[in-house]
């Protein structure tokens, strides 16, 4: 058994190094900023002063918030209605929500630019189109997060109880369903935001200066600033996703299921037979 243990630690250790070295090296790279052995935060202060940072960040934040808002407005009612009224359609919606995985982002740009040439440029000529498309890109993950949330509550009983006590549909949504679906909703929003903040292909091809697009432009002039900002971006996404993981496991993995949102279909739906099994794992 000693051989197994050695093998285990070597394998996990090497994987750990592979993960950590680029992070550590980037931090050192940005702190040295070209002067070996002399650490300073100059790359970071330059980054703040870099022209265009503010505007590109604002664009990215607006697009992400828009995408998250559309995602929730579209998916939460849909998933609730389907579970409540058409349980048999669930498989269909599930399959449809996976479709974006089969269409590469570049192809979506090709199609949107080709199919909607004649649509007023208010939509296709502004970052609004990015928010609209990111909803699709994030759908395999956001749909799963919300669906897992809805399945984890006893929807029929909640609806019956609320209705029998005289709550209208509006009150049912705002007072009963939305609060009990909080973590699933939060997971879907987080995942959409994380994806939207980092998306590069579509934004750059369509010519919108979101944060990642702007960052690539900076790299040519000042790699230290670009790396410093990359560290910040990575840190931000990681915090977002770890928070999500914590929230998911804190509730006995009841509602969100970390794997559900993040890796989506593969783990939650296809490989693990049911959410319960995932909890055991």
């Amino acid at each position: 058994m000693k051989r197994t243990r050695t093998f285990r630690w070597i394998a996990l250790g090497l994987l750990g190094l592979y993960v950590l070295i680029p992070v550590a090296a980037s931090v050192q790279f940005s702190l040295e900023a070209g002067y070996k052995g002399r650490l300073s935060f100059s790359a970071y202060s330059q980054a703040v002063a870099e022209g265009g940072l503010g505007t590109s960040l604002v664009t990215s934040v607006k697009v992400s918030a828009g995408a998250a808002a559309i995602t929730l407005a579209l998916l939460v009612p849909t998933v609730i209605f389907v579970n409540l009224c058409f349980p048999r359609w669930r498989a269909v919606l599930d399959a449809v929500s996976l479709l974006p995985l089969g269409v590469p982002a570049v192809v979506i740009v090709l199609g949107v630019l080709g199919a909607y040439k004649s649509v007023p440029s208010v939509i296709t000529g502004t970052p609004v189109i990015l928010a609209l498309v990111y909803v699709i890109l994030a759908m395999p993950y956001s749909y799963r997060a919300i669906d897992a949330g809805v399945r984890s509550i006893d929807l029929h009983t909640l609806v019956d109880a609320a209705r029998s006590m005289g709550a209208g549909w509006g009150k049912l949504f705002s007072r009963v369903l939305l609060p009990s679906l909080r973590s699933g909703i939060l997971a879907a929003a987080f995942l959409t935001v994380a994806l939207s903040l980092g998306e590069y292909a579509i934004a750059s091809i369509m010519g919108f200066s979101t944060f990642p697009v702007w960052l690539v432009g900076v790299e040519g002039n000042n790699p230290y600033v670009a790396v410093a900002l990359s560290i910040c971006a990575l840190a931000f996404t990681w915090i977002l996703l770890v928070t999500l993981a914590m929230a998911g496991s804190g509730r006995k993995r009841r509602s969100t299921g970390f794997g559900a949102g993040l890796v989506g279909p593969e783990v939650e739906v296809e490989i693990s037979p049911s959410p319960e099994d995932e909890a055991v794992a």
């Binding site: 993960v19 680029p22 992070v23 090296a25 980037s26 994380a194 994806l195 980092g198 998306e199 590069y200 990642p212 960052l215 690539v216 790299e219 790699p223 670009a226 790396v227 900002l229 990359s230 560290i231 971006a233 990575l234 996404t237 990681w238 996703l241 770890v242 993981a245 970390f258 794997g259 993040l262 890796v263």
Partner: peptide, 14 residues
Amino acid sequence: GVLANTGGVPLAFA
């Protein structure tokens, strides 16, 4: 779960 979603521009720069 976190790393599988890391990618894109910041990773290339790292």
